[in-house]
């Protein structure tokens, strides 16, 4: 099922996106759309192409084919407007370990043209929300993995983006930190009408109220609200649906190497 035609401008619109590194095709004709307030889980195993997709959306490099638009701003033609509306949490940690929490966030604020009291207020607000306001002058090196992730989330939100991208944000976190991160981001979706793209290989991070995009070997196998995807696959759970979809894909003529498991 293709997404319904957009009446309002989509927060993120990806269409006909393909990319290759040399001969290796990483993404094939990927298309999806995120509306404001959508919590969308990009579900795929390691190597499915999630990180490449993120690199293309964040304009680290351009795709070979296809179009990416953020609130109607084409990433190639209006990169500045597109990037300004975007907050990103990358898969690898990107904080300066030797700087304090606040210094890290202030650096990020300046990269978005924010400084002075306005930046200070925004930083305080976001640190407050992730419960780290009292650690503001702690060096990042002294924080736990879960706390560092929360700082990265706060950082991604300092410039008040309307689209939030997270690439495997829960990797290496304990259950409690994971829970906190998911709840916090879902709350942002509801309260700020923020569109979120949450890439993960952990199926249980997509509950029944989420939307899901199943990405496998660079192709979108299915997408939509979780109940619809499971219903189409004719199975009760998303896990079973994922297995069914990837098995069917494996069975197609160009993928005869056998079962994924």
């Amino acid at each position: 099922m293709t997404p319904a035609p957009q009446v309002t401008t989509a927060a993120l619109d990806v269409s006909g996106l393909s990319h290759a590194f040399g001969p290796r095709q990483v993404l094939r004709d990927v298309g999806f759309s995120l509306a404001p307030g959508d919590f969308t889980v990009l579900l795929g195993l390691n190597g499915a192409g999630k990180t490449t997709l993120f690199a293309l959306i964040t304009r680290l490099y351009h795709s070979r084919q296809g179009r990416i638009a953020v609130f109607g701003h084409d990433i190639r033609r209006q990169p500045s407007a597109a990037l300004a509306a975007m907050g990103v949490v990358f898969q690898q940690p990107t904080l300066d370990l030797d700087l304090t929490v606040r210094q890290n966030l202030a650096y990020h604020a300046s990269l978005h043209g924010l400084a002075g009291s306005r930046a200070r207020i925004r930083i305080e607000e976001e640190l407050e929300r992730v419960g780290l306001a009292d650690r503001r002058d702690t060096r990042v090196r002294q924080l736990s993995g879960g706390q560092r992730r929360r700082v990265e989330l706060a950082r991604a939100l300092v410039h008040d983006p309307a689209l939030l991208l997270l690439d495997e944000p829960t990797v290496g976190l304990d259950i409690e930190s994971r829970r906190f991160l998911i709840d916090h981001v879902r709350h942002l979706c509801r309260s700020r009408d923020m569109a979120v793209l949450w890439a993960t290989h952990l199926i249980d991070e997509a509950d029944d109220t989420a939307k899901v995009i199943v990405l496998h070997q660079g192709q979108v196998l299915d997408q939509g609200p979780v109940p619809q995807v499971t219903a189409r696959a004719g199975v009760p759970t998303l896990r079973a649906a994922f297995d069914t979809l990837t098995r069917q894909h494996q069975g197609t003529p160009q993928h005869q190497e056998g079962a994924a498991r």
Partner: peptide, 10 residues
């Protein structure tokens, strides 16, 4: 990592 942070600035 840190280069990515820099390059996603508008």
């Amino acid at each position: 990592g840190s280069m990515k942070t820099l390059l996603v600035s508008p």
